[in-house]
């Protein structure tokens, strides 16, 4: 059975066992909606150690050719882990309040 996401399914349409029977469905849920703090990345200060990338719980740090290219605000939930893991000498990520 393939799951339908365009409308709420009734109980007879659900795959048995409470499972989600396809992969990567989390892409459809924009966890960035919750954010109250926003990480702002500074490309000048970044030394591309990738610590933020490996630590981000939502895979929201964008990387190309082993270099950080920015933050995906669709999925970044603003937890601040990237900013706190960033080496103090670089301090390339600053958390600011969303309303600013």
């Amino acid at each position: 059975m393939s799951m339908k996401f365009d409308r709420p399914m009734n109980w007879k349409e659900l795959p048995a066992g409470c499972l989600i029977d396809e992969a990567a469905t989390s892409l459809r849920f924009k966890t960035g909606d919750w954010r109250s703090m926003r990480p702002v990345w500074n490309s000048e200060k970044c030394i591309h150690c990738l610590l933020c990338w490996i630590s981000c719980p939502d895979s929201a740090i964008k990387v190309e050719n082993e270099k950080i290219t920015g933050i995906d605000y669709n999925y970044c939930k603003g937890c601040g882990i990237c900013a706190s893991i960033c080496p103090p000498k670089a301090s390339a990520i600053e958390m600011i309040r969303e309303e600013k």
Partner: peptide, 20 residues
């Protein structure tokens, strides 16, 4: 065929899963 087993299921689907 990767799937997610035992995901969080709130007000929107828990009841349907129990009914099934």
């Amino acid at each position: 065929n990767p799937k997610t087993y035992g995901p969080l299921d709130l007000q929107d689907y828990f009841f349907e899963h129990k009914r099934a």
